[in-house]
């Protein structure tokens, strides 16, 4: 298993596509190769209000940019995310980080 995980605090994901485009540029993927791709729930009526959620899901091509960022530089998708709702963290720290984020949070180990 990988040592790092990606946390998406998806209550703040606005569906801006910055992660998708950054990832393709960073890795020179061709147009059908996605390191991360948005999924969408809604917009639709839900309980007494609305649901309109996006969750970007990393694919197997996602290496969490571990090597590229070994010098301490930011992970490109995390840096550009307009909602600032992404983190790449060591798997062993997940239990400490997650409680503070509350609900509507996803963790990926791609």
């Amino acid at each position: 298993m990988k040592d790092y995980a990606m946390i998406i605090d998806y209550k703040y994901c606005t569906g801006c596509h910055a992660c998708e485009v950054t990832c393709q540029n960073e890795h020179n993927f061709n147009e059908n190769e996605w390191g991360i791709k948005l999924t969408e729930h809604g917009p639709t009526k839900f309980e007494s209000g609305w649901v309109w959620n996006y969750v970007p899901v990393p694919s197997k091509l996602c290496d969490l940019c571990v090597e590229k960022t070994s010098d301490g530089s930011p992970v490109p998708c995390v840096l550009h995310c307009l909602g600032q709702c992404m983190q790449v963290v060591p798997v062993k720290e997940l239990a400490d980080i997650l409680p503070a984020l509350g609900e509507e949070v996803a963790v990926f180990i791609p």
């Binding site: 801006c16 910055a18 485009v21 540029n25 307009l82």
Partner: peptide, 22 residues
Amino acid sequence: VKVEGDPQHPITNGRLCVRCLT
């Protein structure tokens, strides 16, 4: 050849939309 957000910017903090990224 490459566009990277500037984390030091006081308003945008490195965030960029797809129009600058392309």
